[in-house]
Design a protein around this nucleic acid. Structure first.
Length: 256
DNA sequence: ATGGCCTGCAACGCAGGA
């Protein structure tokens, strides 16, 4: 089973990239973030023509997550249980024995901002949801844009980023609180090349100079991590014409 | 270089991203 996650920064603009990438990689499930469209405008028909079903939690203009899959999703859930949030950032679905979430963690803007407080509160609510989900689903996968670089080695210039949003100790602790539930960062289950990132700013030739951050993650429950056979970041689509600023992350699991 | 870009929405600049 091959599962991927990709923050596409508008599905409307990136549809051709997504279709080309699906044709080439043939994942069983692809979690999308920042689709930036309402449910009705999501290109479900174009994906269906490629053999993919869609579950969508959309919003006009901002945010929005989806799960596209070769098999039909079941038990689709929107949002974080009792946590009231107008922003569409969480979508869960079950594929056989696998429970998958597409997550778009808030950016946080600046550590002094209301958006930063929202980010930390959102993480706390997510943790509560996941504690319950892990009891129900031994094979749980969180696929998404976490908007946190877990460690300094996930940042091209840790000194420059110290204390900035995506790298603050509080954000890293919030991410660690998820990991402490019994989740593993699948990327780090394997030897990886140094300076591997998943996001590069559009400005200043950051991609060309490989000045990026690794903020797109796939976190797997203990049982699922034990059957994870690979995890990699496909940086190539970031070099395509008019790209998303994020690259897809792909993981494979020894299960059907 | 302290800089640099992109998207949607609604209009011709803004909010938001990371």
């Amino acid at each position: 089973m091959k599962v991927a996650t990709w923050n596409v920064n508008s599905i409307k603009v990136r549809l051709e990239h997504v279709l080309a990438w699906l044709d080439r990689e043939q994942p069983d499930v692809l979690a999308l973030q920042e689709i930036k469209t309402r449910d009705d405008d999501f290109p479900a028909d174009a994906l269906r023509a490629r053999g993919y079903a869609s579950a969508v939690s959309g919003q006009a203009g901002y945010n929005g997550v989806a799960l596209v899959s070769r098999i039909e999703p079941s038990d689709v859930t929107h949002g974080i249980g009792g946590y009231v949030d107008e922003q569409k950032r969480v979508l869960g679905a079950t594929f056989g024995t696998l429970r998958v979430y597409s997550l778009y963690v808030p950016n946080g803007e600046r550590p002094e901002s209301d958006k930063y407080r929202y980010k930390l509160g959102w993480f706390a609510a997510l943790r509560n949801l996941l504690a319950a989900e892990l009891r129900r689903h031994p094979r749980l996968l969180l696929a998404g844009d976490f908007n946190v670089a877990p460690e300094d080695r996930d940042v091209y210039d840790p000194a420059a980023w110290q204390g900035h949003v995506l790298c603050t100790p509080e954000e890293r602790a919030a991410l660690a609180s998820l990991v402490e539930l019994g989740l593993r960062d699948t990327f780090r289950l394997f030897d990886q090349p140094p300076a591997t990132y998943s996001w590069w700013d559009y400005r200043a030739g950051m991609y060309r100079r490989n000045r990026g951050l690794r903020i797109d993650l796939m976190l797997a429950s203990r049982e699922l991590s034990q059957i994870c056979t690979s995890c990699r970041i496909d940086r190539e689509p970031r070099g395509w014409e008019r790209p998303s600023d994020h690259a897809p992350v792909v993981a494979e699991f020894a299960t059907t």
